[in-house]
Amino acid sequence: MGSVRTNRYSIVSSEEDGMKLATMAVANGFGNGKSKVHTRQQCRSRFVKKDGHCNVQFINVGEKGQRYLADIFTTCVDIRWRWMLVIFCLAFVLSWLFFGCVFWLIALLHGDLDTDYKDDDDKSKVSKACVSEVNSFTAAFLFSIETQTTIGYGFRCVTDECPIAVFMVVFQSIVGCIIDAFIIGAVMAKMAKPKKRNETLVFSHNAVIAMRDGKLCLMWRVGNLRKSHLVEAHVRAQLLKSRITSEGEYIPLDQIDINVGFDSGIDRIFLVSPITIVHEIDEDSPLYDLSKQDIDNADFEIVVILEGMVEATAMTTQCRSSYLANEILWGHRYEPVLFEEKHYYKVDYSRFHKTYEVPNTPLCSARDLAEKKYILSNANSFCYENEVALTSKEEEEDSENGVPESTSTDSPPGIDLHNQASVPLEPRPLRRESEIGSRR
Rank of each mutant, 00 (worst) to 15 (best):
T6S: 14
T6Y: 03
S10E: 10
I11W: 11
E15L: 06
E16M: 05
E16S: 05
D17Y: 04
M19P: 09
M19S: 09
L21V: 10
M24V: 07
N28A: 11
N32P: 12
N32R: 10
N32T: 14
K34S: 13
S35V: 11
H38V: 13
Q42L: 10
Q42M: 07
C43K: 12
V48I: 09
V48D: 00
K49V: 04
D51Y: 03
D51I: 03
D51V: 03
G52Y: 00
H53G: 11
F58H: 11
I59W: 11
I59M: 10
G62L: 13
Y68D: 05
Y68L: 10
F73E: 14
F73L: 06
T74R: 10
T75V: 05
D78L: 12
I79T: 10
W81D: 03
W81L: 12
R82P: 12
M84G: 05
L90H: 14
V93N: 01
V93M: 05
S95D: 02
W96T: 08
L97S: 02
F98D: 01
F99H: 01
G100A: 09
V102D: 00
V102G: 05
W104E: 02
W104V: 10
W104H: 08
L105G: 11
L108N: 15
L109Y: 13
H110L: 01
G111V: 02
D112G: 01
D114I: 13
T115I: 04
D116Y: 09
Y117K: 01
Y117C: 00
K118L: 01
K118C: 01
K118E: 00
D122R: 00
S127C: 03
A129W: 04
V131L: 14
E133I: 03
N135C: 04
F137S: 02
A139S: 15
A139C: 00
A140P: 01
L142H: 01
F143C: 02
F143H: 01
S144T: 03
I145C: 08
I145E: 00
T147S: 02
R156K: 08
R156D: 02
T159E: 02
D160V: 02
E161A: 10
P163E: 05
P163R: 03
F167V: 13
F167H: 00
V169L: 11
F171K: 03
S173Y: 12
I174P: 00
G176L: 03
I178M: 15
I179S: 12
A186N: 12
V187E: 03
M188A: 15
V202W: 06
F203T: 03
H205L: 03
A207I: 00
M211A: 13
D213Q: 15
G214C: 09
G214D: 04
L216F: 08
M219V: 02
W220E: 00
S228N: 08
H229R: 12
L230A: 11
H234T: 11
R236L: 01
R236V: 09
R236W: 05
R236M: 06
Q238K: 09
L239G: 00
L239R: 00
E247M: 10
G248L: 04
E249H: 12
Y250W: 11
Y250I: 15
Y250F: 10
I258D: 01
I258C: 03
D263L: 05
S273T: 10
S273A: 08
I275N: 07
I275Y: 13
T276A: 08
Y288W: 13
D289N: 04
D289C: 07
Q293R: 07
Q293D: 14
D296W: 04
E301Q: 03
I302N: 00
V303M: 10
V304M: 08
L306K: 02
G308I: 06
E311M: 06
A312G: 11
A312W: 08
M315I: 07
T316D: 11
T316C: 13
T317M: 13
T317F: 15
C319M: 07
C319N: 12
S321Q: 15
S321T: 11
Y323D: 02
L324V: 08
A325L: 00
E327C: 00
I328R: 00
G331T: 00
H332A: 09
H332T: 01
R333S: 14
E341L: 04
K342W: 04
H343M: 05
Y344F: 09
E357T: 05
V358L: 10
N360Q: 11
T361Y: 03
P362D: 00
S365W: 01
A370E: 03
E371Q: 05
E371C: 04
K372F: 06
K372Y: 10
L376W: 08
S377C: 09
S377K: 05
N380V: 06
N380L: 03
N380R: 09
C383P: 02
Y384G: 04
Y384W: 13
E385K: 04
N386M: 05
E387M: 01
V388D: 15
V388M: 06
S392E: 13
K393P: 14
D398E: 08
S399F: 13
N401D: 13
G402E: 06
V403W: 05
S408C: 12
T409H: 06
T409P: 10
D410G: 09
P412G: 12
P412T: 13
P413N: 11
I415Q: 13
I415Y: 03
D416E: 04
D416M: 06
A421P: 09
V423R: 09
P424G: 12
P424M: 14
R428C: 13
L430W: 07
E433D: 09
E435G: 05
I436H: 12
